[in-house]
Design a protein around this nucleic acid. Structure first.
Lengths: 238, 238
DNA sequence: CAGTGGTCTAGACCACAAT
DNA sequence: TTGTGGTCTAGACCACTGT
């Protein structure tokens, strides 16, 4: 079997919503009809529909039917910004990296707590300026567990750190806990982001966890004020 | 049947993770054992486990077992901030509201697009200062579709707008699309949020949709700089 | 190889909506 | 009353892990 049947059904129905076969606000065929069409059991169809509901394409009314959410397509055009996947993947070749700092340090109390490491466990401290189309995009201040990411070097930092972590080390990212706030400029902002003294800074502080829940990284990423930077989210109700 | 069996199982297992019956990083009993214990089919147990995985408590390895994510409990202590549920629900009785503006207007082009209404459809324009424990918490500038929220009055705005929408009008919120950014102060910030001229402002601009995808509200909410305000998110990978 | 999770089925019963 | 979605079952086969 190439791909799970429910995933195939999921993709076919998604396509039909996007191309207008199933129209905004209208009901789609009922579960029995779909099970029939796809030669699947109703449970399997239901699983595909549940996923589509979770992603915001559909909603169901017991006793009535399953309907296409209005603006379903619109909303999906702007995806949540998955920073843990790495900027390189999002922005491709257009991004450059300038490594400002690359050291191994012992963790402070706060870091020991965030990364769940001992005071004697070595930690990488990295500062990178990321540049997109010649403009400063974000200044990243990262602490990485050295135990989890052996063999890190400056060459990797010039390219994609997350490609190294995911493809070479085969580590799997599970989740990220983020705290987004507005801050005043500091020295690094003025120096590297070319910010002016009273510009507001969009700061994203995050702890990134592996699939098994081990903390991988604690980082503070600061974006300059230029009217372009924003963090976007689609928040679905349960 | 009081509550779906899979939800009961979901809650029992969640409790066991929180109280340490199932320990961080360790495997929980296999699906057959759980099905046996709860007198349920394996499919039903699987559904509960899938939900727990989605919420970040567990992860599964085919061929090996189902494990408790480390920091599962930690992460869940800080919930995503569901602003569409209304501040009143989050902060309870501690919140006061000062209504600065309450008008009916015709929508601008941008608003017509955001709320999917015609230029002749009336729209409420509302400005409210929300105060928590005597301190300015957020300044809300809201545009609401008057067709969807009939009978709105200033008394409601002094209490909970979302309680009126959800309980009295029985409208169901489906999702919210948010854009979070750092901004410079404007006149309202200085006047109502007691911000200083060069303080950074955390701005959350959102479109809130009903369950069927109809746009309900477009609003711009601005938080003062005081080191306390931040937007927190737990971002789970697929 | 045995044990585990991932998927799928065919049928059943229920709750709710529309008529 | 009929049709819809929501839940649940008992069993089956497969893919993968660990020994």
């Amino acid at each position: 079997m190439a791909e799970a049947k429910y995933k195939q059904i999921f993709n076919i129905i998604k396509k039909r919503i996007k191309d207008g076969t199933y129209q905004n606000g209208k009901a789609i065929p009922d579960q029995n009809a779909l099970a029939n069409e796809f030669n699947a059991s109703r449970m399997t169809v239901k699983k595909a529909l549940d996923m589509l509901s979770y992603e915001g394409f559909l909603y169901s009314k017991r006793g009535s039917g399953t309907y296409v959410r209005q603006n379903a397509a619109d909303q999906r055009d702007t995806l949540p910004f998955n920073e843990y996947a790495g900027l390189t993947k999002e922005l491709g070749e257009k991004i450059e990296s300038q490594v400002v700092k690359f050291d191994v340090v012992f963790p402070t109390k706060t870091l020991q707590d965030q990364l769940k490491v001992k005071s004697t466990d070595p930690i990488y401290e990295i500062k990178r300026l990321r540049i997109v189309e010649g403009e400063p995009y974000v200044f990243e201040h990262t602490f990485l567990s050295a135990r989890l990411v052996p063999g890190l070097n400056e060459n990797i930092l010039h390219h994609s750190l997350y490609e190294y972590i995911q493809k070479d080390l085969k580590l799997k990212i599970g989740s990220a806990f983020r705290r987004i706030s507005a801050e005043k400029t500091n020295e690094d902002d003025l120096k590297y982001l070319k910010s002016k003294k009273n510009d507001p800074i969009l700061q994203i502080q995050q702890t990134v966890y592996l699939e098994n829940g081990e903390p991988l990284e604690f980082s503070t990423n600061r974006h300059p004020y230029n009217g372009k930077h924003a963090y976007t989210i689609l928040d679905m109700k349960k």
